[in-house]
């Protein structure tokens, strides 16, 4: 009994189950199309931010161009559908393979250098791809690509309502978090955090730093690509800006950083706060709202960097003991 009470993880475990139950029940309770759409948007944001988190949060290699993987994931299924009528489901693994290949191409040269170099390379490569795709007629140029209008079967992943998408996305989110959780506890997770703290010290202890960083980037790219594919098939439409645009990368970074980069549930928490906010500002301000949203995002990112680089989870960890003490005193 005493042991059970002393177990700090038990409270966390209860919260996780509650969260899971809430996410499963949400679309059933809020069956309105608008709320379901917000839910799907939230899940997608949480998936991609959690994917970013593997390399940007745990390994501390801050990518500001993750849209390159998202875009590859979104484009590939729709491209193969457009060219050869492949079912989008078949294009998803190809997108993942391409993304992993791209991750290696970027990681190999930059991971030998300081982390700034990696960040700079990611944003430049993402922009290169965005411009290139916009000029390439085969992949739809500036107009983009469309998916199947009518489903020929479930493998086309083209559904009428949002509900199937919601549960598919939820399953993928669960997968990303489960994989992250498993890695966090293994040697790989320890190595990632060691690398984030001091590469030099990590190497002196035999950590194969470049290989581990590359593996983290590849894994992160794979999940980000899957998130992009989900976006592509759900929307049934993709263009250079919604696939490869800088704002796609910005969202991943800000969701993860606000909640807590390098924590399991940080990206999810960030998305939980910001997605409703973004939806609200878009509804209130209409189209002009999105510009304002990014003013706000810029401001939030600056404030996080300046005052709380650990994000909200870190803030909570520091404040919780004080609050608890005050509650006891009262």
């Amino acid at each position: 009994m005493k042991k059970l009470l002393a177990q700090p993880a038990s409270g966390q475990r209860v919260s996780v189950w509650l969260l899971a139950a809430a996410l499963v029940l949400y679309p059933l309770v809020f069956s309105d199309a608008f709320y379901r759409d917000v839910g799907v948007t939230f899940l997608l944001a949480a998936i991609s931010a959690s994917a970013w988190n593997i390399v940007g949060g745990y390994a501390g290699q801050v990518s500001v161009g993750h849209s390159m993987f998202f875009g590859l994931g979104a484009y590939t299924p729709l491209l193969f559908y457009t060219l050869w009528g492949w079912p989008p489901l078949a294009g998803i693994p190809v997108g993942i393979l391409l993304s992993v290949g791209l991750a290696v191409v970027i990681g190999l040269p930059t991971f030998r250098l300081s982390g700034h170099y990696f960040s700079m390379a990611t944003i430049a490569v993402a922009e290169l791809i965005r411009i290139f795709v916009g000029t390439w007629a085969l992949v739809g140029g500036a107009i983009g690509l469309q998916g199947p209008a009518m489903a020929r079967g479930w493998w086309d992943l083209t559904f009428r309502g949002d509900l199937p998408y919601y549960y598919i996305f939820l399953a993928v989110l669960a997968l990303v978090l489960a994989v992250t959780f498993a890695l966090e506890r293994r040697r790989f997770g320890y190595y990632l955090r060691a690398i984030k703290s001091s590469e030099r010290a990590a190497r002196s202890l035999g950590v194969p730093v470049r290989r581990v960083k590359l593996q983290a980037l590849a894994l992160s790219a794979a999940f980000t690509s899957a998130a992009g594919s989900l976006y592509g098939v759900k929307t049934g439409f993709i263009d250079p800006d919604s696939g490869f645009g800088i704002l796609v990368s910005v969202q991943m970074v800000i969701f993860a950083a606000l909640g807590g980069a390098g924590t399991l549930f940080g990206p999810l928490l960030g998305a939980l706060i910001l997605v409703p906010l973004q939806t609200a500002s878009n509804t209130w301000f209409g189209g002009g709202g999105s510009g304002l949203t990014f003013v706000l995002y810029g401001g939030i990112i600056v404030l996080i960097a300046r005052f709380e680089p650990g994000g909200l989870f870190d803030l909570w960890r520091r404040l919780a003991p004080h609050l608890r003490r005050r509650a006891h005193a009262a």
């Binding site: 703290s197 001091s198 010290a201």
Partner: peptide
């Protein structure tokens, strides 16, 4: 080896 200026993993 150890380092003259200690470099521990401070987040851990």
């Amino acid at each position: 080896r150890t380092f003259q200026v200690p470099t521990t993993f401070d987040d851990m």
